[in-house]
């Protein structure tokens, strides 16, 4: 048993270091405290609601969010707007529906069951409107980037003047956290760009943090349930393991062998 554990832990340590060295990126990302990390990590409701505001008022003009529905905004574990608020948000958007009995498409106010309205008809339209670059869908963006939330958070604050010797083409911007440092998206945030409905001071840092939190939720809407369930599952497994261990000791005590 001792030998077994020793070898096993050696292998795990090796794999862990390999994995982490593999995951380590060359750039150091900006660090901040994320409330959703850790065994009991939960989203900060205020940040999620503010993050939604940043998303709609800033990002949503180019970036779609196609896997989310307005009902999600009122669901547990998310921004937890009241159902009334979520309905009001939904009905503020025009949704294309149809065909009606005349075979025509028509627009109507959004409902809770509707998916988030997309800024462009399709990918080609999005590319055409953005100089050939497709603004990626944001539903799972955080999980689709190696650095995750830290990367997004840093990127939003990483715009700066290009170092001497680097020339940028028209419509290309310099960002120290972007892969290859060249990014087509212009700096989206500036201090006081929006007015938070809860009165929080809208600094670039604050908005970056809020919107990144919001994007973490859109990518992992069941994160809170997952953490809660995980804690219970692991505590349960440990209890059962202990019980089985003593049962095993007792059963094996009938034969003269060490287990």
């Amino acid at each position: 048993m001792k030998n077994f554990l020793r070898i096993l832990s050696l292998i795990i340590v090796f794999l862990a270091t390999t994995l982490s060295s593999h995951a380590a990126e060359k750039v150091e990302y900006l660090k901040t405290d994320w409330s959703f990390k850790g065994l009991f990590g939960k989203f900060d409701r205020g940040a999620l609601q503010r993050g939604y505001q940043v998303y709609t008022e800033v990002c949503a003009s180019c970036h779609s969010m196609k896997y989310l529905s307005y009902r999600n905004l009122a669901e547990k574990g998310g921004p937890e707007f009241t159902e009334q608020q979520a309905k009001a948000i939904a009905s503020s958007f025009d949704v294309t529906d149809g065909p009606n009995s005349d075979g025509e498409m028509f627009t109507r106010p959004g409902k809770l069951s509707d998916k988030f309205v997309m800024p462009y008809e399709n990918v080609k339209a999005a590319q055409a409107a953005n100089g050939g670059a497709y603004p990626p869908d944001m539903s799972v963006l955080v999980k689709a980037r190696g650095g995750g939330v830290d990367y997004i958070y840093s990127l939003l604050q990483g715009y700066e003047d290009p170092p001497v010797g680097i020339t940028l083409d028209e419509g290309v911007h310099y960002n120290r956290y972007m892969y290859g440092n060249k990014i087509k998206m212009s700096n989206p945030l500036s201090d006081g760009l929006i007015e938070y409905s809860d009165g929080t001071n809208a600094t670039v840092e604050q908005m970056s943090k809020d919107v990144t939190t919001f994007l973490m939720w859109t990518a992992e809407p069941h994160l809170e349930t997952r953490h809660q369930m995980g804690f219970k599952a692991i505590v349960y497994l440990i209890i059962l393991t202990i019980l089985v261990y003593f049962s095993m000791k007792r059963i094996w005590s009938r034969v003269e062998t060490e287990v």
Binding site: H227, M229, G230, I234, L237, V244, M248, W252
Partner: peptide
Amino acid sequence: VIKDGFALLMFMIVFAFFVFY
């Protein structure tokens, strides 16, 4: 059976950690 069961539970703890965290 009980010995395999004990080992399996330890394995499941690692498994659960990956799945949930």
